[in-house]
Design a protein around this nucleic acid. Sequence first.
DNA 1: TATTGTTATACTCTATAACTATA
DNA 2: TATAGTTATAGAGTATAACAATA
Lengths: 151, 151
Amino acid sequence: MTIRTGPGPAVTSRLGYLLKHALQHLGALSEEALAPFDIDDRQLAVLLLLANNDPMSQQQAAARLSIDRTTMVAVLDALEVKGFVTRTPHPADRRRNTVQLTDRGRTTLESANAAWDEAEQAFLGPLDQQAAAQFRASLADLTHRRDSPTS
Amino acid sequence: MTIRTGPGPAVTSRLGYLLKHALQHLGALSEEALAPFDIDDRQLAVLLLLANNDPMSQQQAAARLSIDRTTMVAVLDALEVKGFVTRTPHPADRRRNTVQLTDRGRTTLESANAAWDEAEQAFLGPLDQQAAAQFRASLADLTHRRDSPTS
DNA sequence: TATTGTTATACTCTATAACTATA
DNA sequence: TATAGTTATAGAGTATAACAATA
């Protein structure tokens, strides 16, 4: 007796199906890991961006993360309410806001980032160490190196 | 001088970021590959499901693919208009529709499925054959085998 | 006139609720 | 009353358009 609950191998072996479900699973793990810090993945990406670069305007930050500037407003609103970032008018160009990480933001970033790492580890749990490293490397190749096959 | 356009390694090395962009890229390739057949990935998944199983009701098909039954209505509407599937009332229970692949649907399925395979090949292009096979295997492990580490 | 941040609007996608016809 | 299919409605998420302040 074959009790089939899924769509069958013709669908489940498709790369798109696998990637979609993998992302979904990782997303669930990440959300759970970040929840205690009252932050989500996109907000954390903003904190990471700010922590690793010179202060920048909202529009610059939005461009770097490939999200719309109108969407960035809402993300920063949330981060500002939580006290993770500040918006200060740029002295030379008062149209711009300079976005900066607060101490609290930096502290939260470090803790949340560590939890994020752990969620990734858990996600990769089914793979042995070698396979996990290879998987990560291949994924990086696929997204970053879409030309120039060798070195 | 370092001209940085992306968010930087702290973000781009995250698995979630990589998976998301990989899926996005594959999605674009697939969409392009399937366009000549006037079909999208979800519709093709329905055809694949029907081709590899006994005839089933709309609700059964929806459950198999984990999509809402109300969403399935629209998907089948599109497939029916194109002449890829037929809906016929179930003789024993006239509330149900039996969904079946037409000859035209089967022909399109075969061509489109081949194109879909090619899109996957193109997506995996940056990886050598061994790495591509390993990547696929690891991905399958990650989505299907979330427990029971060995065999 | 062009640009930054903001707000308002529209659009897409999907889920929920409500309706019909059968059982 | 319960279920299959359908339709209508509402919600989340995001993009587009419009606006105010500044350059």
